[in-house]
Amino acid sequence: MLKCPNCQSKDLGKIGLNQYYCWNCFIELTISDQIIQTHQVEEDGTLSSLDDLFHVEERKLS
């Protein structure tokens, strides 16, 4: 089962094809090539990458 790499929550909502939103820590997750890409949603609606906060191993789907 998919878990948020930031808070380990399973409380994720699907918002698009391979896109999820963590209702616990409020980040957006995108799955590409079995790797979870993490983004913070800014006030203006743009996305800022948070991938540099996690090792690739932490973002791999298990």
Rank of each mutant, 00 (worst) to 15 (best):
Q8C: 13
H55C: 03
I27Y: 13
S49K: 03
M1L: 11
E57T: 10
H39S: 11
D33R: 14
L2F: 07
E43W: 04
D51R: 07
S9E: 08
V56H: 07
L29F: 10
V41W: 01
T30M: 14
D44P: 00
Q40H: 12
N24T: 13
E28C: 06
Q40M: 10
N24Q: 15
K3M: 06
E43F: 13
N18T: 03
G16K: 08
E42R: 10
I15T: 10
W23N: 15
C4H: 04
W23G: 10
I27R: 11
I36T: 07
Q19M: 10
E42H: 06
V56N: 08
R59M: 01
T38G: 03
L2I: 13
V41Q: 06
F26G: 03
E58C: 11
N18D: 11
S62P: 15
K60Q: 11
L47I: 11
C22L: 07
I35Y: 02
D51Y: 00
L29I: 15
Y20W: 15
E58H: 02
E58T: 05
C4A: 13
I31W: 02
K60D: 00
T46H: 05
I36R: 07
H39A: 06
Q19S: 08
T38N: 06
I36C: 01
G45M: 12
D52N: 06
S62V: 14
T46C: 08
T46F: 03
G13M: 08
N18Y: 13
I36L: 06
I31F: 02
S49A: 09
Y20P: 08
E58I: 06
I35E: 14
E57L: 06
H55E: 01
D52Y: 09
Q34A: 14
